[in-house]
């Protein structure tokens, strides 16, 4: 009975294994980089993670709903370009607020397009969002042919400093978890998980499956907008047309490292946040372990593949022993 309970705990809280993994990689990180837990280092490390965390949260919602969004990275590029064409160092707070609202609206609109195509035209999520990702990257290039841009200095200074001796990123994480804990109790969350786990069963029970699918991409678009806002805060507004492009794969890897199954219907955003941290810590370790620069990409990729293949490998080994 006890072991069954433990199994249930793991089945329900899929991010527990990820959390253990995070503790392990943090331990390794501490060995190679002793000052990793100092406030200043922690603040710097975490701050650069916030955009990817937001992106991974949006990606989680899509994946839980049974989809996949390959356009999030270039969407961040496009929205960042959009933001800094509107905001200059001399913008008034009103103008900035307007720009922020417009960027969020643009992100949700982009997500809506993805969602409508996937849910109503029934195209594969992967193909659809891969295709739209080029639209977004094309628009980003039009808006921002040359790297550049900046935002009022006060904003980026505020974003860089800890508040009440706690890194600002912690507030972001707390807000995300609060958002999720509220969302998780709604009927919408039941629909989301049901749609991702078995669309046919959900439909036969009266769940508006297509509407739910569309909303997941709208969430993803909104979180891409929030990601681009925080990204611009951390760069001080300096952007380029492909600034977010590499974040797509990272967001998916983070979701998987967080214990969310890519086939949908299971997982949560806590996992994605942990996944982002694991990803970052692994890169930290590679950097501080003095892996030669030219091998870093390869080592990084191998570690990620191993982490992703982990659960499948364990199942395979268990089955072959069971025989």
């Amino acid at each position: 009975m006890k072991s069954l309970n433990l199994q249930r705990v793991f089945a329900r809280n899929t991010y527990l294994i990820s959390f253990i993994l995070l503790v392990i990689v943090l331990g390794i990180n501490y060995i190679v980089q002793n000052n990793v837990f100092e406030l200043r280092v922690l603040n710097n490390n975490l701050r650069t993670l916030v955009p990817l965390m937001l992106l991974a949260v949006g990606q989680s919602i899509v994946v839980i709903g049974g989809g996949l969004d390959l356009s999030v990275g270039t969407l961040v590029s496009m929205l960042s370009a959009l933001l800094i064409t509107w905001v200059t160092p001399d913008s008034t707070p009103d103008q900035i607020l307007l720009a922020v609202v417009l960027v969020c609206a643009a992100g949700m609109l982009a997500g809506l397009v993805n969602g409508l195509v996937v849910a109503y035209l029934r195209l594969q999520p992967m193909i659809t969002t891969y295709a739209t990702s080029f639209i977004f990257s094309g628009i980003a290039l039009l808006l921002l042919p040359r790297p550049g841009g900046s935002i009022p200095r006060d904003l980026s200074t505020f974003y860089r400093s800890p508040l009440l001796d706690i890194p600002l990123a912690f507030y972001a994480i707390a807000l995300l978890l609060l958002f999720w804990s509220v969302l998780r109790t709604t009927r919408y969350a039941q629909y989301l998980y049901a749609t991702g786990s078995s669309g046919a069963a959900a439909y036969a029970t009266g769940v508006p499956v297509r509407v739910v699918r569309v909303t997941t991409y709208v969430w993803s678009g909104l979180f891409a907008a929030l990601a681009s806002l925080t990204l611009m805060l951390s760069t001080g507004g300096a952007s380029q047309a492909n600034i977010g492009d590499d974040m797509t794969l990272d967001s998916i890897v983070a979701v998987v490292l967080g214990g969310t199954r890519l086939s949908g219907g299971q997982g949560g955003i806590a996992g994605a946040i942990i996944g982002v941290m694991i990803l970052r810590v692994i890169r930290n370790v590679i950097f501080f372990a003095a892996v030669p620069t030219w091998s870093q990409t390869l080592v990084n990729a191998l570690i990620i593949i191993a982490a992703l293949a982990g659960p499948g490998l364990i199942r395979l080994i268990r089955r072959s022993i069971g025989r």
Partner: peptide, 16 residues
């Protein structure tokens, strides 16, 4: 067809 495998018994019975 009509049960969602990753949800609990209660969640399935009262879905929607």
């Amino acid at each position: 067809l009509s049960l969602v495998p990753d949800m609990t018994v209660a969640e399935n019975i009262w879905l929607a």
